Amino acid sequence: MVSRLVDSAELDRIKRDPEFARALFAEAGSLLLQGEPEVARVMLHNLVNATFGFEGLAQATGRPSKSLHRMLSVSGNPSMDNIAAIFDALRHHLGASIEVQANTVA
C-alpha cells in the first residue's frame, strides 16, 4: 500500500501539469470506490498540498483546515459528506469532471 506523501519534485509536477493533477484526482476517486481509502486519502492530501492548500480547501468546503488535514491523513476517517465536499472542491479547482463507470469483472 502506498501511504506516503509525495516529494517536492512530484508536488512541482502536480503544480505545473494540470493533466497530471487531473489524472491523480481520477485515480484517487477510483481507488476510493475500489476499497482503498487509505491510498485515496493520501493522494487527495498531496493534490490539496500542491494546488490550493488546506486553507484554500477550508474556504471551499467550509470546514476547518486542521480537520481537513486530519481527514486526509493515512489514518483519517472522513464522513461521506466531507469526502463529497473535498472531491467537489478539488473538481472545481482542477476544472475536472467526474464520471463513474461500472464494468463486469471476469
Rank of each mutant, 00 (worst) to 15 (best):
L72N: 09
S65L: 04
S67L: 12
G56E: 02
S73N: 10
K66I: 06
V48A: 04
S65G: 01
S73L: 06
K66E: 13
N49S: 09
G56L: 03
G76P: 05
P64V: 01
M71L: 10
G62D: 05
V48Q: 01
A60K: 11
T51M: 08
P64E: 11
A58V: 10
T51D: 05
F52D: 12
G62N: 08
T51Y: 03
T61N: 03
N49L: 13
A60S: 09
R70C: 00
A50L: 06
F54I: 01
R63L: 15
L57F: 08
T51P: 05
G53M: 00
N46M: 08
G62L: 09
A50V: 04
R70V: 08
V48W: 01
G53P: 01
H69D: 10
L72P: 08
K66Q: 12
G62Y: 08
R70Q: 13
L68I: 11
L68P: 05
S65Q: 12
L57T: 05
T51L: 03
F54A: 04
Q59W: 00
S75H: 13
S67T: 15
G53H: 03
S65W: 06
V74D: 10
F52A: 03
N77E: 14
A58G: 11
S75D: 15
Q59D: 09
M71F: 15
R70E: 12
S75Y: 10
L57P: 05
S73K: 09
H69E: 13
N77D: 15
F54S: 01
S75T: 14
R70L: 11
Q59T: 12
N49G: 00
T61K: 02
G76R: 05
N46R: 10
S75F: 08
T51H: 06
N49Q: 11
N77L: 11
G76Y: 04
H69C: 03
P64T: 07
R70T: 12
A60R: 11
G76A: 10
N46P: 06
E55Q: 11
R63P: 00
V48C: 03
S75Q: 14
T51I: 08
P64R: 13
F54K: 05
H69Y: 15
P64Q: 11
F54E: 01
G53Q: 01
L72G: 10
K66M: 07
S65C: 00
S73Y: 07
A50F: 02
G76W: 04
E55S: 12
S75L: 09
G56P: 02
G56H: 01
V74T: 12
G76F: 05
R70S: 13
A60L: 06
S75R: 14
P64H: 11
A50D: 02
L57D: 05
R63Y: 10
V74C: 10
S65V: 03
V48T: 09
G62T: 07
V74M: 13
K66A: 14
S75A: 14
H69L: 13
L72W: 07
R70P: 00
S73E: 10
N77C: 10
S73V: 06
A58N: 03
S73F: 04
V48N: 02
N49V: 12
A50C: 07
E55T: 12
S73G: 14
V48P: 01
R63D: 00
G56V: 06
